[in-house]
Computed example of a mutant assay.
Amino acid sequence: MLMILNILAGLFLALCLLAAIHDVNRLTIPNWLNLALAGLFIPAAAVSGLPLEILGGHLMIAALAFLIAFGLFAFRIFGGGDAKMIPAVMLWLGPEAGVPFVFSMALAGGACALLILAVRRTVPAAAVPGVVRAPFEENAGVPYGVAIAAGTFMAASASPFLSDLLNQVSAWS
Rank of each mutant, 00 (worst) to 15 (best):
S159L: 05
L18R: 13
S173N: 13
G57D: 05
M90V: 07
E138G: 11
A156M: 06
I68S: 02
V24D: 00
G71V: 06
H58Q: 14
L107A: 14
D23Y: 10
W92A: 05
P100I: 03
E53S: 12
F136A: 00
L117K: 04
R26A: 14
N31L: 15
T122V: 11
A38R: 07
A108M: 10
S170N: 10
A46G: 10
L15I: 10
W32R: 12
G56H: 04
P95H: 09
L64S: 11
M60S: 13
A118W: 09
A19W: 05
L33E: 00
H22I: 12
P124C: 01
W172T: 12
I29M: 06
V24T: 09
R121E: 09
W92C: 08
L67A: 15
P51V: 06
W92Y: 06
E96V: 15
P95I: 15
V132L: 12
G109P: 00
M90D: 06
P95C: 01
L13N: 05
A118N: 06
V146T: 05
P100R: 03
P100A: 04
A106Q: 02
P124I: 07
H22E: 12
I86V: 14
A149S: 13
L64Y: 08
L50P: 01
A45I: 07
P160M: 05
V89Q: 04
A44N: 10
I77V: 14
A149K: 01
F161H: 13
I4T: 13
P124S: 12
L17D: 03
I42A: 15
V131Q: 14
G80N: 03
S173K: 11
L93N: 08
A118G: 12
A147L: 04
R76V: 10
A149G: 03
G94H: 02
V47L: 04
M90G: 06
A118E: 08
L40Y: 07
A125H: 08
M90N: 00
H22M: 10
F75I: 12
A108S: 15
M90T: 04
F75K: 11
P129M: 10
P135M: 07
S157T: 11
A62W: 02
S173E: 11
L2M: 10
V123D: 01
A63G: 15
T152K: 03
M3R: 08
L91G: 01
L52V: 14
A127H: 12
Y144T: 00
L27Q: 14
V131W: 15
G110A: 07
I7F: 14
S157N: 12
F103V: 15
A83W: 04
A134G: 07
P95M: 10
E137N: 15
I29C: 09
L52K: 09
L33Y: 00
E137S: 12
V146C: 02
